[in-house]
Structure formats: structure tokens, C-alpha cells
Amino acid sequence: MTIISKKVELIELFYDLIFVYAISRLTSIISEPVNGGIAPFSLFAYIITSFVILQAWLYFTNYVNRYGQWKWYEYVIAIINMIAVIYMANTISSTWNNYFVFNVSMLIMLFTVVFLYSVHAIKEKSLKGAAGNSITILLVVCSIYIISTLSILFGHMDVVIWLNVLAILTGAFLPFFLKGKFDKSIINFPHLIERFELLTIITFGEAVVGITHFFNVNNFDFVPILVFLIVIGMFGSYVLQIHYLVDHHREERSLRLMFSHYFIVISINLVTVAFELIHSGEINYWIPSLMVIISLIVFYLSIMANKEYYYDGLELRKKDIALMVLISLIGSIAILLSVGSIYGFLIGALIITLANFGVLLNKYQKFNDN
């Protein structure tokens, strides 16, 4: 079956930029150490809010992928959605206390997508298809955010974060229970994977901005070069795995692609945060060391989860997995054995990123040779 790629419109790229701004704002929650550490709640809030933002991005992206034709009302809805994202992003800070605006912004974003699906359902004259299924899921999620917002108004702030967690889990797992008459042929896999690639590449761009503090024009050393090589190693690994080894022209429900990219984007940002914490000079080195190790492991597990989309005849063998695990273990041990040493920290991270990049590059070259 021939899969025709759907063109990614320029307005979609602009939309992605708005969301990357929101994601970049998240670093303000944990990038400033307090007494040499990070408050556990701040890290928890960071991860939860990351999922909220990425889920909101995915709701609109899924609609565009399935039904979007960029008619005039879709442009209007996209603009309203983006304005709400900016308001939502500007509520995020280390002293985050404006949950009301955050929740209202989320509700606006969600209801705009409900409106778009409703227009399509009216055209189909049915709520039994994928559009009706999406409307049901989104309205359930909206209901939870409404309850969360009412909790703010009535002074029950202690339950707000947990209601938002429930909204995330509902949006993530309800599709497994409310499947409806879902026709996976409505999903344009080439378009969807290109959207995820673009969002991830822009996130890498934010990572580069985050490490520019290391590049001191008045005091040259090798630290900024090593930091940059770590980011390049991650970027190269992502491109090889997702862009070159994955077969884009296929018919898939693509749930694995969606969920893995949540963790890919979050892990890239956490590596950036770890570098910023080290640069601050006010952090216990164990914190960024463990953050980098966990983030890199999550990053490589997440990109490798997409091996199910490989081209026919291409597979990840047990010895490839064993080698990547060994590389990650050696790099992690190097980081832990040199806590307090910036060069030891960076060399350990380089072992993980560049060596895993080498494994994927070797697989790509062998596949091309065949």
C-alpha cells in the first residue's frame, strides 16, 4: 500500500515554536538550586507540567494529522490555541503560584480541539468514529481541569496538582479503553513523525541555547567543546534512529511513537538543566550527575523503543542491545567515580552519547551496504 506524505505547513512549524517556548520555561522551576539542591516537589512539578504541555501539543497535532485541511477556521483556532499556550507558559516559574491562569489556558486549548473535532463529526454525521472518540476523551479531560479550577476558586489548592496529574493519566490511558471505531488509516504516519522530529530538533536548539553559558570568550578551555559534543552525540543518535532507520511510509496507530517522544523531549531538557546547574556552581555535584545518567538512559531507551518501526529486514539484535547497555554502564560508572570533577563528568557522558551514536551509525552503514 502506498502511503502519501502529508505536507507540514508553515503554520505548524510556528505552532511548534510556541510550544518549545513553553517547554523552555519549565527549566525555571528546577534550574536554580536551593542550598545546593533541588526541592523534590519542584522536580515533580517539572515532570508533570512537561507531560501537560506535550499532551496539549499532541491533542492539536493529532487533529491536524488526521483531518486538518487548514481552512480559515482552523487558522483561527490555531491562533487562539497559541495565545493560550503563551499565557500558560508565562505562569511557569520557580515560585509557581498562578494555577488558575494555567488551568484556564489549558481549558481553552482543549476546547479549541474539541471544536475542531466536532466540526468534523458534524460533517460525518456521526460520533461513532475517531472524531467522536476523541471528543469524548477530551471532554473527560476538560471535566477534570474544570474540577481542578473550581478547587482553586474554593481554596482547595492541595488537590490541584493531583487533579492535573489525573488529567494527564486520563488523557494518556483513556484511549486504550475508549477505542471506538478507530480506523488507523486516518493517521498519516509520515506527517506525524515529521512533526515529532521537528519538535525534537527545536528542543535540541533550546539545549544549544542553554549551554552557551559555557562558551566564555575571555577564558578558553575544553569544557564547552565537550558539552557541545554531548549534545551533538544525542542529536546524531536521534537522527539516525528516527529519521534514517525508521520506515516513515507505513500505516500505524503510532502510540509507541507518541509516548516515546514525551520522554525524549523531557530527557533532552533535563540534560540541559543538569548542565545549567553545573554552570551555576551552587549545586551538589551528585544531583546533576544522577540527572544526566538517568536522562541519557531514558533518552536512549525512548529512541530505541521505536525499533518496531524499522524497515523490513532491519532489526536490533541482542548483541547490539548488550553493547549499548555496556556502553551506558561504563559511562555511568565514569560519571559516578568522578563526582566533583567537571572533566570526569563530561567524559562519562561523552562515552554514553558518542559510543551509542557509533553503534547506530554502524547499523545504518551496514543497512545501506545491504
Rank of each mutant, 00 (worst) to 15 (best):
I30G: 00
D320I: 05
Q365R: 15
A305R: 10
A322G: 09
C142R: 01
I48E: 08
G132P: 06
E276F: 00
M106W: 02
N133F: 01
A121G: 10
I77R: 03
S50C: 09
P33Q: 07
T27V: 06
E74A: 07
P190C: 13
S254Y: 05
P33F: 08
I38M: 06
M304N: 15
N65F: 05
I303R: 01
E206N: 06
T95N: 13
I351H: 03
F14N: 09
W162R: 02
S254F: 08
G313W: 09
I278M: 10
V227G: 03
E194Y: 04
L226P: 03
V52L: 11
I225V: 15
G344T: 06
S302V: 09
Q55C: 03
Y238D: 02
L245M: 12
S151K: 07
D183A: 09
I202Y: 07
F19Q: 04
I287H: 11
V325T: 12
A207H: 04
Y310L: 13
L10Y: 10
Y87Q: 09
E74M: 03
F44K: 01
A45E: 11
T200F: 02
G344R: 07
L166T: 11
F100P: 00
Y67N: 04
G155H: 01
S105W: 02
K123V: 00
F220Y: 15
P40G: 00
N269Q: 14
I29S: 05
I168D: 03
Y59Q: 03
E9H: 09
N81G: 11
N368S: 11
L116P: 03
N356T: 02
D158P: 01
I144P: 05
N216I: 12
K181F: 11
V160H: 05
V217F: 11
Y67I: 00
Y343K: 12
K363M: 15
F259T: 09
L329E: 13
Y46Q: 05
W57E: 03
I333G: 06
K6G: 05
A305C: 09
V165F: 11
S118Y: 15
L139M: 12
L58N: 03
L138E: 08
F263W: 02
M291K: 02
P288Q: 05
F345L: 05
N356Q: 07
G68T: 09
Y311L: 10
R66C: 13
L346W: 05
N188C: 07
I321P: 00
I161G: 01
L354V: 07
F263R: 01
F176K: 11
A167K: 01
T27C: 00
V101M: 14
I3Y: 12
V34Q: 14
Y15F: 14
I3D: 13
I202A: 07
F275A: 05
A84F: 06
F220N: 08
S134Q: 10
G180W: 09
W162D: 08
N164Q: 11
F19W: 07
T203V: 05
V76G: 04
A305N: 14
M234N: 01
V8C: 03
I347A: 13
C142N: 04
A39L: 11
V298P: 04
V271I: 14
L163F: 12
L301I: 13
V34A: 11
V114A: 06
S254N: 08
L174P: 06
T170K: 06
S118V: 01
S289N: 06
S332C: 12
L337H: 06
